[in-house]
Design a protein around this nucleic acid. Structure first.
Length: 565
RNA sequence: UGGGGCGUAGCCAAGCGGUAAGGCACGGGACUUUGGAUCCUGGAUUCGUAGGUUCGAAUCCUACCGCCCCAGCCA
C-alpha cells in the first residue's frame, strides 16, 4: 500500500521509497533533528523538524532529538531547555531518544585513534593561519602540511597528549588525511579535533579537545542508526566528507556503527517580510527592537507561540510549502492563510471595538437592557450561543461610519441604515462633533421591528457591523501585530542595514478597548475571532501579571480595505 | 578560469519520454445578519535560452545564460 497518499510527493520521499524498495537499512527509516543549543529555534527549524518527524511517522520509522553540542564555547543549557520546549509544543515525539552528541565523545575519541592507526589522520602543528594558507584557494590546490606524514606512534602519542591538556588552544589539531588538491575544500585534510580548554554544558571539564561537526555528525548519525540524515543545502559540499566518515566508521568501528547513513540536503526555509539568520534575530533582541526571543513579531517558535499561532497551522503550512532543493522565499500571505484556515473553525466569535465611536440610540429607553443572542460559531450549532447585553449607548468601530461615504460603502453614514450584528437595524440621525470638528458621537434611532431573527421590518440592509454595549463593556488591551519589516526581503538590496526596514507599525497597542464581557473572563491562551477584525490570543504571559491582553494573531481578509486601494 | 547546487505562472511546488497537479496571491461571479467564511470560475500553447535526438521532450543529449553556496581550529 502506498504511504500517506494524501501527502505531496517530494524528492526526499522519492529517495526513501526507492531505498525501501531496494531493501536498504533492513527497511528501516530513522531520522533526527540535530540542533546546536546555541540559540532559539525559528520557523525555518520548524520546517526541518516537521519534515524529519513526518517522514519517520509516514514510513513507520523513528525520530531522534539530538543536540549537536560539539562547541562548548557557544552552547548553553538554557538553549537546550528552550529547544525541548519548542519541540514539545510543535507536537513531535522522540520517545526515549533524546541524545547529546557529547554523550559519545569517548567513542569518537576511539574512532579518531583508529583513524590514526589506519594512517588516515594525523596531528598537525600548523597554526590556524598557516592551515588557512596551506589550504589553498578556490582555484588553487592546497599544499600538504609538513606534519602530514608523522608516524602512527607519534600521532597517537600527540593526540593523547592533546587530550591530556598538555597543549594550549590552537596549537595543534587532528586532521584527516584526504586530498589537499581536491576541488572541494572540505576534503583538503579537514580538521577533526581542536583543542578547546572550555567548560562544556554537559561534560564539564572532562574534555579539552572537541570534535568538529564534520567528524562528529556523520559518526553520530551512523551510531544512532539514522538512515536518512536531512540537512540544508549548504552542506552539499560536505557530503563527500560525510560519506568518508561514515565509510571509515563502518570499517573501523563496526562493533558500534548501525548503518550507512545517508545525507540528503534540501533548501532552507525563507519567508517574506522577516529575517531568519540567528545573527539578525539576536540583533533584534539585543538592540531592543523587539521585547525578546518570544516577541510575537519574531519568526521564532517561541514568538509564534506567544503570538497565538497554533502548531497545526504551522504543520499544514509546511506541508503545503513542500520540500525542494531550489532556493525559495515563501510569501507571508501563504502563512497567514494557513493560520486563518486553522483558526476558522476553532476560534469562537466575539465582539470588541478596537477604535470606538459612541452611538446613542435616542429612541431606546434610558435604562432598558436587552440580552441578544449571538452564535459562537456561525454554521456550527454545536458551538452554541451566548447572550450579549444591548443598551442605549453603544460603541461601534470608527471606520464603520463615514460622513461622506464613497459608493460601495455599505456601512453607516448620515441618514443611512446598518444592522448591528445580532441586534437591530439603526439609522444615523445626527453627527455630534467637538470644537475641532472631530466626530465624537452618533445619534441614531433603531427600528423595533428589526430585531435579529424576528425581523418584520422588511428592510434590507447591506451592512452588518459589530458593536459593544458601553455600559457593559469590559476593557481590554489589544496588541495589533503586523509584519516586522516593510520590505519583502529585508536582507536584500540594501546599502543600509536591515534594521532600517523595520516596520514602525509592527506593534500598535490599544488600551481600554471595549469588548464583550466574556472576553475579560476567558482562560489565558484562549483564541477568539473578534468579528470582522481578526483572530486574537489571550496572552498568558500578561495574564500572569493580572492583565488582560489580546494579541492579534492575524487579521481577517478585508476586501473593503482592498477596494480602497 | 576550482568544486557543489538551482532555474516550471507574482510566490511556493508536482511532474522523471506520451502531450503542464495542487496551494497562496490575483481577476470574475454566486451566496452571506462577519465586505469574514463558503462555493463556482479565469490564467503557463508552455517549463532560463538555443540547438539536437525522438512519431512524441519540462522530462534525454549539447552548448550557452542567470542565480546561490564553499577558502571557521562554527554548526
Amino acid at each position: 500500500m502506498a504511504y500517506e497518499p494524501e501527502r505531496d510527493s517530494n524528492f526526499i520521499r522519492t529517495i526513501i521509497e526507492k531505498d525501501l524498495e531496494e531493501g536498504k537499512n533492513g527497511g528501516r527509516v530513522h531520522t533526527r533533528f540535530p540542533p546546536e543549543p546555541n540559540g532559539y529555534l525559528h520557523i525555518g527549524h520548524a520546517k526541518a523538524i516537521l519534515l524529519n518527524y513526518s517522514i519517520a511517522q509516514d514510513y513507520k520509522g523513528k525520530f531522534n532529538l539530538r543536540f549537536d553540542d560539539t562547541n562548548p564555547i557557544k552552547e548553553e543549557q538554557e538553549f537546550v531547555d528552550s529547544i525541548i520546549d519548542d519541540l514539545h509544543w510543535l507536537g513531535v515525539d522522540w520517545e526515549d531518544r533524546l541524545f547529546f552528541t557529547s554523550d559519545s565523545f569517548e567513542l569518537k575519541y576511539e574512532f579518531a585513534r583508529r583513524l590514526i592507526k589506519a594512517g588516515r589522520a594525523y596531528v598537525c602543528d600548523l597554526s590556524p593561519e598557516e592551515i588557512r594558507e596551506y589550504r589553498g584557494t578556490l582555484t588553487e590546490p592546497g599544499t600538504e602540511s609538513p606534519y602530514r606524514n608523522r608516524s602512527v606512534d607519534e600521532n597517537l602519542e600527540l593526540f593523547e597528549r592533546m587530550r591530556q591538556g598538555e597543549f594550549p588552544d590552537g596549537s595543534r589539531v587532528l586532521r584527516a588525511k584526504i586530498d589537499m588538491a581536491s576541488g572541494n575544500l572540505n576534503m583538503r585534510d579537514p580538521v577533526l579535533y581542536r583543542i578547546l580548554h572550555a567548560k562544556h554544558h554537559r561534560t564539564g571539564d572532562k574534555w579539552c579537545i572537541y570534535p568538529m561537526y564534520d567528524f562528529d555528525h556523520p559518526f553520530t548519525d551512523a551510531l544512532e542508526g539514522i538512515t536518512h540524515s536531512l540537512c540544508s543545502i549548504e552542506y552539499s559540499d560536505h557530503r563527500p566528507l560525510y560519506d568518508w566518515v561514515v565509510e571509515n566508521a563502518l570499517e573501523l568501528m563496526p562493533e558500534v556503527i548501525k548503518c550507512r547513513s545517508r545525507q540528503i540536503e534540501f533548501a532552507r526555509f525563507n519567508m517574506t517580510y522577516t529575517v531568519m539568520s540567528k545573527r539578525k534575530l539576536r540583533c533584534l533582541v539585543e538592540e531592543g527592537h523587539v521585547s525578546g526571543w518570544d516577541d510575537p513579531r519574531m519568526p521564532t517558535i517561541a514568538g509564534l507561540r506567544r503570538r497565538g499561532v497554533t502548531p497545526a497551522a504551522i504543520a499544514s503550512f509546511m506541508e503545503e510549502v513542500g520540500v525542494a532543493r531550489a532556493e525559495s522565499t515563501v510569501d507571508l500571505a501563504m502563512f497567514e492563510h494557513f493560520i486563518r484556515q486553522d483558526l476558522e473553525d476553532k476560534a469562537l466569535r466575539m465582539m470588541a471595538v478596537l477604535h470606538p465611536l459612541k452611538v446613542v440610540i435616542t429612541n431606546w429607553p434610558e435604562e432598558k437592557i436587552e440580552l441578544v443572542e449571538l452564535e459562537n460559531m456561525p454554521g456550527d450549532e454545536g458551538a452554541g450561543t451566548r447572550q450579549v447585553p444591548f443598551g442605549r449607548e453603544l460603541y461601534i468601530e470608527q471606520e464603520d461610519f463615514m460622513e461622506e461615504p464613497p459608493k460601495k460603502f455599505y456601512r453607516l453614514a448620515p441618514g443611512r441604515e446598518v444592522r448591528l450584528k445580532g441586534a437591530y437595524i439603526i439609522r444615523c440621525e445626527e453627527v455630534i462633533k467637538d470644537a475641532e470638528g472631530n466626530i465624537t458621537e452618533l445619534r441614531c434611532t433603531y427600528d423595533p421591528q428589526s430585531k435579529s431573527g424576528q425581523d418584520t421590518s422588511g428592510k434590507k440592509v447591506r451592512g452588518v457591523i459589530h458593536w459593544v454595549s458601553a455600559r457593559h463593556a469590559a476593557r481590554i488591551t489589544v496588541r495589533l501585530y503586523d509584519k516586522l519589516f516593510i520590505k519583502e526581503n529585508p536582507e536584500d538590496e540594501g546599502e543600509g542595514d536591515f534594521i532600517d526596514y523595520l516596520n514602525p507599525e509592527s506593534l500598535v497597542v490599544l488600551e481600554d478597548v471595549p469588548a464583550e464581557p466574556a472576553l475579560a473572563e476567558a482562560a489565558p491562551g484562549s483564541r477568539f475571532q473578534f468579528l470582522r477584525k481578526g483572530f486574537f490570543y489571550l496572552d498568558p504571559v500578561a495574564a500572569r501579571e493580572g492583565r488582560i491582553v489580546y494579541n492579534r494573531i492575524v487579521s481577517l481578509k478585508d476586501s473593503w480595505a482592498k477596494m480602497k486601494k
